[in-house]
């Protein structure tokens, strides 16, 4: 790593050779580089007072910020190796101050956990504890361990790599970009190497999840609800830096939910799902019951419950068929699974 004096007196070209991503830094800082063989020191010598005012930072400050930027990016790139293999939640207390009645909850990557409980029961607090890698310093007093150890504080403050990625029914795309442009922008911010392939794969997976297909050139703000959801899920699974994904109430969103979960789990993510949809809840390996601010119980999905999944899916697909019939102006027909009511 360069010292402040070194970085001021090294040509921009040479720094870029070592850390290619800093081109982005110069662009965002609006530093007028006419000739890349110049050093920061030389650039600042020839800068007009108006340009200087636009940059905000002085030469020294720019050098310091650049060094910090390189440090952040190097750390960001390095973190890919230390994956989160598992996450443990140690008990704290509920709103009344009573200790939570479980010993230690460990969730491995590739596992799906449902979180259930009425509104205001403490689901958000649990999620916030995970995101903040609580160490007895939040209102619940819970502790979060990563790979069995006390979590590194870096998860709390980094701009790019958060521990938890979130997907919910209320989220929309707001940028004025095509699907392809948008994915490239995201990939760029993640410093991904094989950008084109990754972008192509995300579009392919998203189209597999969506009912109606979309093209790479489609505007993201013009996608249907189902298409948006599908793209968000595929993008989060493949491009998000976060090892844990929280899915908040994605009910009948016009996507294949089973395939969506499989995609997330296949990318070695830990999936937490706040849901009261029985089909989704039963796809989980376990479910956390939240009540009065605390974890009241952890239930393993039993074989008996899992066997219900088949009939639930049948009812679900029946409802979906009826929706399709309505959409295309057909007459609604009764399904024979209800023939037992025909006494």
């Amino acid at each position: 790593m360069y010292s402040k004096i070194e970085i001021k007196n090294t040509s921009i070209e040479e720094i870029i050779k070592k850390y290619p991503y800093i081109e982005n830094f110069f662009k965002e800082q609006e530093i007028p580089i006419e000739n890349k063989s110049q050093t920061l020191n030389e650039i600042f010598k020839n800068i007009s007072s108006i340009e200087r005012e636009d940059i905000v930072y002085s030469e020294d400050e720019t050098a310091e910020k650049l060094i910090q930027y390189i440090k952040n990016m190097q750390e960001f790139l390095g973190v890919e190796d230390n994956t989160v293999k598992n996450l443990s939640i140690l008990p704290g207390k509920d709103k009344e101050g009573y200790a939570e009645k479980y010993e230690k909850l460990t969730i491995k990557n590739g596992e799906i956990i449902s979180i259930v409980g009425p509104t205001g029961s403490g689901k958000s607090r649990l999620l916030a504890d995970i995101e903040w890698t609580a160490s007895g310093d939040t209102p619940t007093g819970r502790h979060i361990l990563i790979n069995g150890e006390k979590a590194d504080k870096k998860w709390r403050f980094s701009g790019g790599k958060k521990l938890v990625a979130q997907l919910s029914q209320n989220m929309n795309f707001v940028m004025d970009l095509s699907v392809e442009e948008f994915l490239h922008l995201h990939a760029e911010s993640r410093l991904i190497e094989n950008e084109d392939q990754v972008v192509e794969r995300i579009i392919e997976e998203a189209n597999r999840l969506a009912g109606e297909k979309f093209s790479p050139g489609a505007q993201i703000t013009g996608l249907s609800g189902g298409q948006s959801r599908a793209l968000m899920i595929a993008d989060t699974a493949i491009l998000s830096s976060s090892p844990i994904i929280l899915i908040d109430e994605i009910e009948n969103a016009g996507i294949n939910r089973e395939k969506a979960l499989k995609l997330l789990v296949g990318e070695e993510k830990i999936v937490l799902m706040a849901t009261h949809d029985p089909i989704l809840a039963l796809m989980g390996d376990r479910r956390i019951i939240i009540n009065n601010g605390g974890i009241a119980d952890i239930i393993k999905t039993s074989e008996k419950e899992k066997s219900m999944l088949k009939e639930l899916k049948e009812i679900d697909s029946y409802l979906n068929e009826l929706r399709e019939d309505l959409r295309y102006g057909r007459e609604l027909k009764r399904n024979n699974i209800f023939s037992l009511y025909d006494a």
């Binding site: 997907l167 209320n170 989220m171 929309n172 707001v174 993640r190 989060t236």
Partner: peptide, 14 residues
């Protein structure tokens, strides 16, 4: 809470 995960990540990186 109202924009996508990807947009949050891109914005934070900017």
């Amino acid at each position: 809470d109202i924009v996508s995960q990807a947009e949050r990540e891109v914005f934070a990186s900017k």
